[in-house]
Simulated assay, not measured.
Amino acid sequence: MKKLVLSAILSLSSFGVAQAFEAEDYLHLHSCSYEDLEQCAEAQLNECMYAAEGYDLHFQAHRASCAHAFSEQADVVLNDFYQLVLLKTKIIERELGDTAYIGQEKLLRNSQRAWLEVRDTTCELNVLYGAIYRGYDTAVVGCLGRMTVRRVADLQNEIGSYLD
Rank of each mutant, 00 (worst) to 15 (best):
64 A>E: 09
52 A>G: 01
62 H>N: 08
16 G>P: 05
25 D>H: 15
40 C>Y: 12
26 Y>L: 00
48 C>A: 14
18 A>T: 10
30 H>I: 11
43 A>N: 15
39 Q>C: 00
33 S>I: 11
57 L>P: 01
20 A>P: 01
26 Y>G: 00
64 A>D: 07
19 Q>A: 15
45 L>T: 04
11 S>G: 00
33 S>C: 06
47 E>V: 05
28 H>I: 05
35 E>T: 12
33 S>R: 01
22 E>N: 14
46 N>Q: 11
9 I>Y: 07
48 C>I: 13
42 E>D: 12
30 H>D: 07
8 A>Y: 05
45 L>G: 03
28 H>R: 09
9 I>W: 05
63 R>I: 01
52 A>I: 00
25 D>A: 15
63 R>N: 02
66 C>R: 09
60 Q>F: 10
46 N>V: 06
54 G>V: 03
20 A>H: 02
13 S>H: 01
43 A>T: 15
42 E>S: 12
46 N>C: 01
39 Q>W: 02
62 H>G: 02
26 Y>R: 06
15 F>Q: 10
25 D>T: 14
17 V>F: 13
37 L>H: 08
8 A>L: 12
39 Q>I: 03
10 L>H: 07
59 F>N: 04
19 Q>E: 15
25 D>S: 15
11 S>V: 13
65 S>A: 14
13 S>F: 13
34 Y>S: 13
31 S>Q: 13
19 Q>P: 07
54 G>L: 09
28 H>E: 13
33 S>V: 10
15 F>A: 13
23 A>Q: 07
62 H>S: 01
53 E>S: 08
48 C>N: 15
60 Q>W: 11
11 S>F: 08
41 A>Y: 06
45 L>E: 10
56 D>N: 11
62 H>F: 02
58 H>F: 10
65 S>K: 04
63 R>G: 00
44 Q>W: 05
51 A>E: 07
20 A>W: 03
58 H>A: 04
46 N>A: 05
56 D>A: 05
24 E>L: 08
25 D>Y: 03
54 G>A: 06
24 E>T: 09
26 Y>H: 14
26 Y>F: 15
39 Q>E: 13
59 F>L: 00
57 L>D: 14
11 S>C: 10
43 A>R: 15
10 L>G: 14
19 Q>K: 11
50 Y>P: 00
40 C>R: 12
61 A>W: 03
30 H>Y: 04
38 E>R: 10
42 E>V: 09
37 L>P: 01
55 Y>I: 05
44 Q>V: 05
44 Q>H: 06
54 G>F: 12
19 Q>M: 03
62 H>R: 03
19 Q>L: 11
29 L>G: 03
59 F>S: 13
21 F>S: 11
37 L>K: 06
33 S>Y: 09
30 H>C: 03
54 G>K: 03
25 D>E: 15
26 Y>M: 08
30 H>L: 04
26 Y>K: 14
34 Y>Q: 14
15 F>H: 10
36 D>W: 04
48 C>D: 14
33 S>F: 11
49 M>S: 04
29 L>F: 10
60 Q>E: 15
14 S>Y: 03
19 Q>R: 12
57 L>N: 06
35 E>G: 00
29 L>R: 02
29 L>I: 01
49 M>D: 01
34 Y>W: 08
22 E>V: 06
16 G>S: 15
40 C>V: 13
50 Y>K: 15
37 L>T: 09
33 S>T: 15
39 Q>N: 13
37 L>G: 05
11 S>K: 03
43 A>M: 12
50 Y>R: 14
31 S>R: 10
24 E>R: 08
